[in-house]
Amino acid sequence: MGNARGVLYGLAFGDAYGYPTEFLKVPEILRKFPPAGPEDLGNVLVSDDTQMALAVSRALVRAEKLDVETLEPLLRQEFIEWANSEENTRAPGMTCMRACERLEKGLPWVKATEMGSKGCGANMRVAPVGVLNLPVEMRSGLAQFQAALTHGHPTGLAASDATAQAIHFLMQGMAPERVLQALLDYAEAQLGLYHHDWLGSLWEESQHPAAAYFIARGWRETMDALLRVKEAMKSPDFDTDPCLLTGAGWIAEEALATGLYCFLLHPEDPRAAFKRAAVTSGDSDSIACLTGSFLGAYLGDDGFPQEWFDRIEYRDELEKMAAKLPLLQA
């Protein structure tokens, strides 16, 4: 069964696998890593995906209470520090950077966020929320809120929520073959459910006539992406670029879908799953980091080669957060 250490390290391992292949077409990847793509964790540097997942982790463990009033200034501070860090040299997402600039100016977060963006930056950092043992409504609201500070689009919120829920399902021992339908059922149950206590007036910044319509749009688009995974899994294709089947991953629902698809192709084999996620024409590091989160939630830290743990960047902080996150209570 999975654990927090597996989820956080899995995210970082996947990020490191996919980071050297991001922005490359598949033929370019195969020339760089002949004959069929990276076979092992050669690169140990991670991207902004792991950096921001650690930022969320730090905010969570610093919080005396898991609510908006406590977490908003902590997340704001962590995101601003990340944006200004000398280590922020890993092709950071422009949505995150623009939103962080406005957060640093002191704008209310509902004015700082990028309302039109559902980029994968919303959910590539949500894994720490997924490992928390929380009531379902709190996990849902918290997952959406951490996304909303930078990505205000309803699909960014819904896909982040679904990502956290998938991690929770797997950590609770759900079989991989059941996760997809469980997520579709979960998404259907969330249609029209707007977390006013977490999201406040965010929906009023959109063009939707009511909060329920706003969030329902996000869940419908997320469900559509999950249905593409369901269709692809009817005849699993181990050779075709997954981005051609479930999306390139630059936007949140496609990152969830393609990361989940790569996990479902190889749930027992991290090397094969990471290779499949890395040899893609889309946002390879974000796809692979989500794949790694799912692997860690299912297999636990014992599921990865032990030598990887000693080599990965940010090892000390990953270790610290993996120990502290499971201790948090609602």
Rank of each mutant, 00 (worst) to 15 (best):
R102D: 13
P305D: 01
I29Y: 02
V136W: 08
R76G: 11
R62D: 08
G14T: 11
V229F: 00
A158L: 00
A122H: 02
L45A: 14
F13Q: 12
N88A: 12
H266Q: 07
H168E: 06
G6R: 01
L142I: 07
A232E: 01
L41C: 04
L264H: 08
D237I: 04
Q207G: 15
D239F: 14
L75G: 02
D310H: 09
D302G: 15
E22Y: 01
T89E: 15
A252R: 04
D224A: 15
W250M: 09
K320C: 03
T222S: 04
A175D: 09
A322Q: 06
V110A: 07
A53G: 10
P236W: 07
F33C: 10
T155L: 01
I215Y: 03
L45Y: 15
V68I: 10
G249C: 07
D161Y: 08
E221Y: 06
Y314E: 15
T113G: 04
L318R: 12
A277S: 13
G259P: 08
L202P: 08
L193Q: 14
E177N: 13
W203L: 12
G249S: 03
T222K: 00
L327W: 06
L184G: 09
P27I: 02
M52A: 03
G2F: 06
S284R: 01
M94Y: 14
E204H: 07
E317I: 09
A330S: 15
L75S: 00
D224E: 13
R5H: 02
L290D: 05
T258K: 05
L75M: 10
V68H: 10
I251G: 03
W308E: 00
G42Q: 13
T222A: 06
L142F: 10
F294Q: 03
S293W: 07
F79V: 13
M321C: 02
L325Y: 00
V136Y: 05
F294A: 04
L60N: 01
D239V: 11
R58L: 13
G300K: 08
G141Q: 12
R31S: 12
G218H: 00
A162Q: 07
L60T: 03
E177W: 03
P176R: 05
G282I: 04
H153Q: 07
A122N: 02
A4R: 01
L180W: 05
Q190H: 12
L71G: 11
D161L: 13
P305F: 03
Y261F: 06
Q77Y: 01
Y9A: 05
A63D: 07
G218E: 01
Q181N: 15
L8Y: 01
Q207P: 00
E104S: 15
G121K: 03
H153L: 07
R217V: 11
F13A: 12
G303A: 06
F33L: 09
G6E: 00
Q172G: 13
L30C: 06
M174S: 12
L184F: 06
R315C: 11
M171S: 04
A297P: 08
A323Q: 15
